[in-house]
Amino acid sequence: MKKGILLVNLGSPESPTPQDVKTYLGEFLMDERVIDLPYIARAALVKGIILKTRPKASAAAYKKIWWEEGSPLIVISERLQAKVQKEIEYPVALAMRYGSMTIEKGLKQLVDQGVDEVFLIPLYPQFAMATTETILVLAEEIRQAHFPNIKIDHLPAFYNRPDYIEVLSNSIKHHLESKTYDHVLFSYHGVPERHIRKSDVTKSHCKLDGSCCKTPSKAHEFCYRHQCLEVTRLVGEKLNLKPDTFSTSFQSRLGFDPWLQPYTDRTIERMGLEGTKNIAIVTPAFVSDCLETLEEIAMEGQELFHEVGGKEFTTVPCLNEENAWSELLAKWINNWADTTATT
């Protein structure tokens, strides 16, 4: 069988215009694994409220971070794809869960090159319904409908792999070595609390009571909250951070249902009000800088911190197309290829 690689990230609007942002948000928010309400309720919320009010504001936010080459997320992902391709002998395609760079197009690009065994890599360190799961479910639907003769394998969540933690920790250390900071805040994209319970394979472990994420369980394989906390803990250990100098928070909540806490914006505000003068923000739920890191954290977060008395606000870039990251992906790909060649 001829092997091929499909890297998959979130996606982006075609341009930072209200119409293109509306089209993108419509596809994104109507995904039943993103807003997990019954279709009628989801459509009423998304089409009846959100898409009538949010596209203009979101377009303005995208415009602030848009590069000459295009969407930062897309440009960075393409650069990463090119670097990984140089490291391995297998064809590498790039797709997005939402937008015009579809998973179907990515698979077709590989099939057209004779590939019949695909290693799909969701570019998310942690598992979540709204990220990894929706990619894998859609990829399988597309395979059955359009490419029934290919086989798809995938990279599981890699949040706790020692080599990933080493690459992430080294990157953070490099970007902070000349900076002044009193506290490192690990900010992860938030999800509704109900997503955690829905992903609990035991149907009883995830109580979100402060202890379940620390108690060993099969539920942790698919528990986004546990996996985020583990990244923070493992990087903290790797960098020898003192317990009171780093913490975890969650950003980008939507709607009025309870989401994972503590919230990043409120944490930044509280720390500034309590006298923290220098803070560094790391965003390990993302491997590529995007709207949530470049605008929500680096711009809005910094403005908020300064408003409440903070001074130095440092944002650590994502891994993006760093050599160590592309080389690690290439190593995982080659390991997969070697393993599948013998089975």
Rank of each mutant, 00 (worst) to 15 (best):
I281C: 06
P317G: 02
E300T: 14
T293D: 03
V282I: 14
E303P: 03
E312Q: 13
G309M: 03
P317L: 00
L319A: 12
E303R: 10
G310A: 05
C290P: 12
K277Q: 15
E296F: 05
E303M: 10
L319E: 10
T283C: 15
I281M: 05
L304C: 03
F286W: 10
L291G: 08
C318K: 03
E303N: 07
F313L: 09
C290W: 11
K311I: 11
F313S: 02
H306R: 14
G275R: 13
T283K: 09
T293V: 08
T293A: 07
A285I: 05
V308S: 00
M299K: 14
G275S: 14
E303V: 09
E292W: 02
T293N: 03
L291I: 12
F313I: 07
T276C: 15
E307L: 06
V308R: 00
L291N: 11
K311P: 00
E300W: 04
G275D: 15
D289C: 07
M299W: 02
E307T: 08
H306C: 04
I281H: 00
E296C: 09
V282Q: 04
Q302C: 13
I297E: 04
S288F: 12
E295P: 03
V316A: 04
D289Q: 10
D289I: 01
H306E: 13
G309K: 03
K277Y: 12
T276R: 12
P284I: 02
T314K: 05
I297L: 15
E296V: 10
T315E: 00
L319I: 09
N278R: 14
T276F: 08
I281D: 00
I281P: 04
L319P: 10
A285P: 06
A285R: 07
I279R: 02
L319R: 07
V316W: 00
E312C: 12
G275Y: 15
C318T: 05
C318H: 05
E296N: 13
N278I: 11
D289L: 07
K311F: 05
M299H: 10
C290T: 12
G301W: 06
V308G: 01
V282H: 01
E300R: 15
T315I: 07
E296H: 09
T314A: 09
M299G: 08
E292Q: 11
E307F: 08
P284C: 04
E300K: 15
E296S: 10
I279L: 13
K311Y: 04
F313E: 03
V308D: 00
G275T: 15
P317R: 01
V282K: 03
E295L: 05
Q302K: 15
Q302L: 09
K311S: 09
H306M: 08
G275P: 11
E300D: 15
